[in-house]
């Protein structure tokens, strides 16, 4: 019995240490530390520094947008989004395979791992990737910096329309 308890305590300790996530640098209303870790990692792979649109995912504050985005939706949807993050985070065990979490993988391995999801022959896996990319893209493109960088402009004659909306946002 004592041995069993000792093993259980050690196992619990291992799980807590192994899966503990650092406290985020700032507070988020809906994202938990684990979610923040995943979003940061995906954001770094999907929207790294440089390239045709120089703004990175971190600069565009993808994580902050997703936190707000979750607040616009019902708890059931928030749960599904978190489930998606958890799946991406822990599925390296199945698809790499490795005991490391996605957010702990080296950058190149993260890219290969996400490419595996994107090009999978298994439709539901591709669907998960598309949903993840859609969410990240919406967050990235919502940034005014990104919008400016890709050249979105409002024509002068519609300025009145744009002003109405800008004043509301």
């Amino acid at each position: 019995m004592a041995l069993f308890l000792l093993i259980a305590i050690l196992l619990l300790l291992f799980i807590v240490l192994r899966f503990r996530y650092p406290r985020p640098a700032r507070d988020y209303r809906h994202l938990r530390p684990a979610d923040v870790c995943v979003v940061h990692a995906v954001s770094d792979v999907m929207f790294p520094d440089g390239g045709a649109v120089a703004v990175s995912g971190r600069t565009a504050d993808i994580t902050g947008y997703i936190d707000r985005y979750l607040g616009w939706h019902a708890p059931s949807l928030r749960f599904l989004v978190r489930l998606m993050f958890a799946l991406i985070e822990h599925a390296p065990l199945l698809f790499v395979p490795t005991l490391k979490r996605f957010s702990d993988l080296p950058a190149e391995a993260q890219e290969r791992y996400l490419a595996g999801w994107e090009h999978s022959r298994f439709y539901p896996r591709r669907m998960v990737f598309q949903s993840l990319r859609a969410l990240m893209s919406m967050a990235y493109l919502a940034s005014p910096d990104v919008e400016r960088a890709i050249g979105v402009e409002r024509p002068e004659r519609c300025e009145a329309a744009a002003i109405v909306k800008r004043s509301a946002t």
Binding site: F47, G50, G51, A52, V53, L141, V146, I150, G151
Partner: peptide, 13 residues
């Protein structure tokens, strides 16, 4: 995704 995706975003115009 990555720089490839950003390249496409850069072509939105």
């Amino acid at each position: 995704f990555g720089k490839r995706l950003k390249e496409y975003y850069g072509k939105l115009r």
